[in-house]
Amino acid sequence: MRYYIMFLLLFVLALNAADKKKFGKELTLKEKTKISDILAAPEKFDGTLVQVEGAIVAVCEHRGCWIKISSDREFESIRFKVEDGVIVFPMEIKGQNVVAEGTVSVKTLSKEELIKQGEMHAKEEGTTFDPSSVKGPQTTIQLMGEGAVVLK
């Protein structure tokens, strides 16, 4: 019984040793790219692995499968999407700074796809979505996330 309790304590200690600030793969790039540069010329970065830094201004509440990172320029942010279940971002990191690495993905979505996406995002964020706000096809830019380190 003594060994059993010691074994359990070791388990708990090992669990607490897990780094709560690192998500996914280790960061590999030495240089950061400005989010404003990506948003200004997305085609130039399409398919490129980049490292960005900013504040986490939104987190997927349902699955923790994306965060929104603020740009270095006002009124701009970029969505950092990760594979469901591979990385799970907790809500507690909202408002903290993050350094994140991902591949830039530029896609043009049709009106129908945008409405579907808008409805899905609104459901995830607990907000409302007005389909009439979608006027036509639109280019969406996001980072397909691989790893992130949340800073204080």
């Binding site: 201004v57 603020s70 009124f75 942010s77 809500m91 909202k94 408002g95 700074n97």
Partner: peptide, 21 residues
């Protein structure tokens, strides 16, 4: 002071505190 500050658009400002926005 907030942990972070963000302007999603010209009429909105967001202030982030631990667990509260």
């Amino acid at each position: 002071d907030p942990q972070n500050y963000f302007r999603p658009d010209s009429s909105t400002a967001q202030l982030f505190y631990q667990g509260i926005t």
